[in-house]
């Protein structure tokens, strides 16, 4: 049932015609030492829509995702060239503060990684860090609001002081989403958010992603083509470090232009 709901909304999606791109990448190359991991990728990511990156393992989709909030900076041997802009501002501008960038571009990781602290503290950490709440009441509002938007509040409202690591896998991942949205990001990057979850938890997350689309620009990397089809409006297919094809999800899955895309989505390789 929950699998169906995003599908139902798919035709209704009006984000099809390109609105102003929220994130725009031009000729992005990434090198890990000698290895050329991402080759000349240019793509536009529309605002308030879900964009899915698909492709076989090692194709560079996660690498590209991590360029958008400059998480690759933490890898010493990683080198990025090209331009990535958010709202037409270059995020690799040396004057730009990477910490503030990461507050604007939230991230949800493959494996649920809540801090080994209470549920409340997990969500409150970001807002507290950025001084988003002037007092406890405001902080409470942010925490409760974030948990509600992550559809987790009803399940944890009586145990906000319990350890975040004590939740189930799906709940932990929703907690991580709540933590990400607590700092009011404009873009949320999700790196295979459901790969460690069972189908029911996956369905819940997918439902949540669909709800979040109204407020956030979401980029999701996934190995599951069904998932890409279910949750995204736009899809980009990566192969061997290159962006092969990008377009509306419907077009990619029904009428791919490239042979490789077709082979991949029909399951001929990957």
């Amino acid at each position: 049932m929950s699998l169906a709901s995003p599908m139902v909304q798919e035709p209704a999606s009006v984000s099809e015609p390109d609105v102003a791109a929220k994130v725009a990448a031009r000729s992005v190359n990434v090198y890990y030492g000698e290895k050329h991991a991402l080759k000349d990728v240019s793509v536009d990511i529309p605002a308030r829509a879900v964009t899915a990156f698909i492709g076989p393992s090692g194709c560079g989709k996660s690498t590209f995702l991590r360029c958008i909030n400059r998480m690759n900076d933490t890898i010493p041997i990683c080198r990025v060239t090209g331009d990535i802009t958010i709202d037409a501002k270059d995020i690799y501008d040396p004057r730009l503060d990477v910490v503030l960038l990461r507050a604007r571009v939230g991230m949800v990781f493959q494996k649920p990684n809540p801090f080994p602290k209470s549920i409340y503290e997990n969500v409150a950490y970001g807002p507290r860090l950025h001084g988003m709440a002037r007092n406890k009441t405001e902080l409470d509002e942010i925490v409760v609001g974030s948990l509600k938007r992550a559809s987790l509040f009803e399940e944890v409202k009586d145990r906000l002081n319990d350890q975040g690591t004590g939740l189930s896998g799906g709940q932990q991942q929703r907690l991580c989403i709540a933590r990400a949205i607590a700092v009011s990001p404009e873009v949320i990057l999700m790196d295979e958010p459901c790969s460690a979850l069972d189908p029911i938890a996956t369905a819940k997350i997918e439902e949540l992603i669909d709800e979040l689309r109204t407020n956030f620009t979401i980029v999701i990397v996934t190995h599951s083509m069904q998932q890409a089809a279910r949750v995204s409006q736009r899809t980009a297919f990566f192969h061997l470090g290159s962006l092969v094809e990008e377009g509306s999800t419907e077009q990619i899955f029904t009428n791919p232009k490239d042979k490789r895309t077709q082979d991949y989505i029909t399951g001929r390789f990957g």
Binding site: V99, R102, F109, F115, L129, H130
Partner: peptide, 22 residues
């Protein structure tokens, strides 16, 4: 685990904050 540091960096903690807080 590096995931803890990444989580902190992901919500906009600086490198030092991620290390000293988490």
């Amino acid at each position: 685990p590096p995931s803890i540091k990444e989580a902190a960096l992901g919500v906009g903690a600086s490198h030092q904050q991620a290390i000293f807080h988490h």
